[in-house]
Design a binder for these strands. Structure first.
Lengths: 208, 208
DNA sequence: CTTTTGTTGTTACAAAATTAACAAATCACA
DNA sequence: TGTGATTTGTTAATTTTGTAACAACAAAAG
């Protein structure tokens, strides 16, 4: 494990996928070859081996990778040792769907709070996660030591709220609103827009 | 416009974002500079100019790009002339959220049908979109000339249903389940997994 | 009219990501 | 023991993506 050295973005993404795929393997299967894992993910065996190499882990020649060890190695590489806490900001349809989706996932990341301004929701729980008022956001984030946020608020409020998150000490924001955030503080941003994905799909499916 | 020549993936993604951003500009603003658009999207002016160049469109020296023309040029480049029809397959929480989200978006792509097996939903409408039984999928896709699908079914059914979609003539699938699809037919696949995004966020926000 | 400033379009360069190539090692088996 | 078949780990080559540099030109200023 090469410690405090940044892995390429794509490699980190794939490592996460490898782990998820490995966790789903039959329990009596103990080893896996690079080409098997590759096939499950529609990529090449070389890429699998290279990613695993970058992480500093080694398999066994002609036996492949020991699945449980590999899962553990990925965890040591991409997870923070203590796990990280996440907030969902904006409990509309999408926010709720995300909270529900995560509750079924096995990961070191845990959603521990949600925020909204709708009196109908504030004070209640959504899929077991408490919902607080947006006004208390700084306080709750500090108290619960939340480091990451998933942003699913209406587009017009997005940047404003993102800045409040940054000021409250949030280190990374996964932005599902369709505006690009601009924040002066050093926050890692990951933006995703469904419309863009679908338009891309339309373009390339036409060229295929 | 260089016609049947494929643009780079990233360029297509950004063109989609440019358009969305342009559509949101003040109506009295007629022109925009590359550096303005760049700033709105957190990227560089060079990249904006280069993307627009690849598309074959030209702005005016010292005046920037005429906003409406640019929007139109992007449409000519990335949209299919007639627009394309989309189905949402799997009307759980996420499927519903997506249908709702799209109904507010201005795009050439329109969601015209959804599919599920739950008798509670089949036959009804979700945000104005009719929901059909999965068994009728081939028929409805042909009838409504649907080309794209958004897949939000339970993970275990994903690949199975994806193959049915491919057989029914679907040309592109946007896959929100956490399995990689493997299909032998020539279908353009775009996969997205929230857990991966969040794990990536956790990793890089820690290194920042 | 001339100079300065600002902006585009494009080519050349750099960085990131993927793919290919292959040596080294292990196992199976004659 | 030796040969062939596999599979890993790593370096090298290629492709894709992003950045920088700069000529060309329009507008503004003097």
């Amino acid at each position: 494990m090469k410690p405090d050295q940044k892995l390429p973005e794509r490699t980190v993404e794939r490592l996460s996928q490898y782990r998820r795929t490995l966790l789903r393997c039959e329990p009596d299967k103990t080893h896996i070859f690079s080409h098997e894992l590759a096939e499950l993910l529609n990529i090449t065996a070389v890429q699998v081996r290279r990613d695993i190499m970058l992480m500093g882990y080694s398999g066994q020649l002609r036996k492949g990778y020991e699945i449980n060890q590999l899962i553990e190695a990925i965890g040591k590489t991409i997870d923070h040792s203590t796990g990280k806490r996440v907030a969902v900001v904006g409990v509309g349809k999408l926010g709720r769907a995300i909270i529900g989706y995560f509750s079924g996932q096995k990961t070191k990341l845990s959603i521990v709070a949600s925020f909204d301004i709708d009196a109908e929701i504030v004070g209640k729980e959504v899929s077991g996660i408490p919902c607080y008022h947006l006004d208390d956001i700084a306080e709750i984030i500090a108290e619960k030591q939340i480091e990451l946020a998933i942003l699913t608020v209406p587009q017009k409020d997005a940047n404003n709220i993102a800045e409040r998150l940054a000021n409250a000490g949030i280190k990374g924001i996964l932005n599902y609103t369709s505006t690009s955030l601009r924040i002066d503080k050093p926050v890692f941003l990951e933006e995703y827009d469904m419309v863009t994905s679908l338009e891309k799909l339309a373009y390339f499916s036409g060229k295929l």
